Simulated assay, not measured.
Amino acid sequence: MSEQILLTGNVPLSANGKRLDQALAEMFPDYSRSRLKTWITDGHVRIEGNVVDRPREKVLAGMAIEVDAELIEERRFEAQPMDLNIVYEDDDILVINKPAGLVVHPGAGTPDGTLLNALLHHFPAIDQVPRAGIIHRLDKDTTGLMVVAKTVPAQTHLVAAMQERQITREYEAVCNGPMTAGGMIDEPIARHPTQRTHMAVVALGKPAVTHFRVAERFRAHTLLRLRLETGRTHQIRVHMAHLRHPLVGDFTYGGRPRPPQKASAELLETLRNFRRQALHAARLSLHHPITGEWMSWEAPTPDDMVNLIAALRLDRQEHPVD
């Protein structure tokens, strides 16, 4: 189903000199920034009667804006009762601690049983927000913190904050191989040229920046703390594999077990049985989209990673460096 809509207004003083997509987000907060941007590029926006299809076009206060577009109703998904580990919730946002195995959004092979279906059951009004308020995603087997918008204005502000790199996301990971120091990985990422389900470092890909530091060293592994500056699909997993330090358990990107020499049977079993990427979104910090208050949350390391780290520590104790 669809309906034709006509939005009109004048650029407010607060949007003077801003980009067109930013001005529209301020003028028409009931619509997501991505939808407004699509209307611009599709030629549905006029400034002073002239079609403008460049989101970066600068506008001046007082300019007459007209949006003449078709509003297509998004696919409706089923609400399903599921347990959610809610870390924080108010009228505008909620923060969840996602477990391993939970897919964020329905897609090929996973039509339901996702976080989106759970959100629709927990807060039915969220069906009025595009993508049920999901701002960013975590891979199915990555655990940790995610923020979700409960209203369109909150989503608009959070999407803008994400694009402007104003949301801090910090991760904990265990990678293969001993690393001596932290650093920054600035390598573009795109779809793998031949393996379509994989991502890869590609010269003409989208910019991707990951910061990392060594938290603890083991004989043949390293515990890392990482911070995303961008949010590309599989970014940490691809970047660490590019450094030849793939994450433990990440069989997609080469994270098969690599035990140290003379490893105990217990450590060998722990590594063999760790069947997901050892990656956890441990800390999330942002300005509240409505109040502007700076907020921060932490999620404890999940049990399987706690056990993995404990096994690696025990191995280090049993084989001290001479």
Rank of each mutant, 00 (worst) to 15 (best):
A220W: 07
A181C: 10
T194G: 03
R256H: 15
A263C: 10
A241L: 07
R219T: 04
T270M: 13
P207G: 07
Q277K: 07
M162I: 11
L286F: 11
E164K: 14
H211Q: 13
L226Y: 03
E172F: 01
V174A: 03
P260E: 13
Y253M: 10
R219D: 11
A161P: 01
T210G: 03
E298S: 13
H242G: 06
L224A: 01
G205S: 09
E187L: 11
P257I: 10
F212I: 06
P289L: 12
A215Q: 11
I167A: 04
Q163C: 05
A278C: 09
L243S: 08
R276D: 01
C175E: 09
T222K: 08
P178C: 15
R232N: 08
M295W: 00
T291K: 00
A281K: 06
V214N: 09
V214M: 14
G254I: 07
G292K: 05
R275Y: 10
P257C: 04
K206G: 07
R165I: 13
A203I: 13
G292S: 09
A161F: 06
R275H: 14
P188L: 01
A190E: 07
H239W: 05
Q166N: 11
R165P: 04
T210N: 10
G254C: 07
A190N: 13
L247M: 12
P207T: 15
V238W: 06
T168C: 05
T270C: 14
M179C: 08
Q195K: 14
A161T: 06
M295D: 00
E216D: 08
H198P: 02
T230S: 10
P260I: 05
T230N: 10
R219Y: 03
R272M: 12
E164A: 15
P193S: 08
L243R: 06
H221S: 02
N273A: 13
L226G: 04
M162D: 01
A265W: 05
H280R: 13
V202Y: 11
R196D: 01
E170T: 09
R258A: 12
G255H: 01
H211G: 09
I185C: 05
P178V: 14
L223E: 05
L267H: 06
H192R: 12
R232M: 04
A265G: 02
V214P: 06
V214Q: 10
T291L: 10
A181S: 15
L271A: 12
G183R: 02
P257M: 07
V209W: 03
E266D: 12
L228W: 00
G255K: 04
R169M: 01
R275T: 14
T291C: 08
A200G: 13
E170K: 14
P178I: 15
R258N: 10
R237D: 06
P259F: 04
A173F: 01
N176R: 04
G292F: 08
E187Y: 07
R196L: 15
E170H: 04
A160E: 11
R258T: 09
I185A: 02
E187F: 03
A281Y: 00
H242F: 11
H280D: 02
